[in-house]
């Protein structure tokens, strides 16, 4: 048997694009799941059984990564030499920092029992949700720019750089939303999303 492709795109047989049709991805996931199902390897050699196990693990990790646009972009960026973590705070626009600071002041008030900041906090939550939507729209635009350009071309690299900045911003905003929601609903356990 040929060695297993380690790369998620290669494993799924998908082009290295940032926009992926989720229905096609799911279909491919089911096909590959059947192909590598351990039951089909019950009578095979130990070596092949091990390979099937490994394939299932790559398959599951790969599906989890590729079906989520943010995780997918982070994966492709890291592979193409744009590791996310290596970026410093310079990409955070100053006005966002200002807002974050104000937000933290409010959070501190609410935590110390001052309920008057609560309505403002709810407003902040809406505001940051809106910011995240904006980032997501920009991300989709850059995904398209990347996918339409030639691989490793200046345009493609520029798009990846842009995406890295956006992903960092998104992560920042995501953390803020989490903090606000925690402060607004300190005892409510998180409910799983419907469906």
């Amino acid at each position: 048997m040929p060695p297993l492709p380690r790369d998620y795109y290669g494993f799924f047989g998908f082009d290295r694009k940032l926009a992926i049709d989720s229905a096609a991805l799911q279909k491919r996931f089911y096909e590959l799941s059947r192909q590598w199902h351990p039951d089909r390897f019950g009578r095979k050699s130990a070596e092949e059984q091990e390979m099937a196990l490994e394939a299932t693990s790559i398959l599951n990790d790969g599906y989890r990564t590729l079906k989520d646009p943010v995780k997918r972009a982070e994966y492709l960026l890291t592979q193409d030499g744009f590791p996310i973590a290596e970026q410093r705070g310079k990409d955070v626009p100053p006005e966002l920092l200002e807002e974050v600071f104000e937000l933290n002041m409010m959070l501190e008030e609410v935590k110390s029992g001052d309920e008057s900041a609560r309505p403002q906090l709810e407003q902040s939550r809406q505001h940051f949700l809106g910011l995240r939507e904006g980032v997501d729209r920009e991300l989709l635009r850059e995904f398209q720019r990347h996918d339409e350009s030639v691989e490793a071309s200046p345009t493609s690299k520029q798009a990846l750089q842009e995406i890295r900045g956006l992903l960092n911003r998104r992560r920042y905003i995501e953390n803020l939303i989490r903090d606000v929601e925690r402060a607004l609903n300190p005892v409510t356990p998180s409910r799983p999303a419907p469906g």
Partner: peptide, 13 residues
Amino acid sequence: GMVGAPECGDVMK
């Protein structure tokens, strides 16, 4: 001076 680190959400004034 207002700076921040997106990875951990720290903000410093």
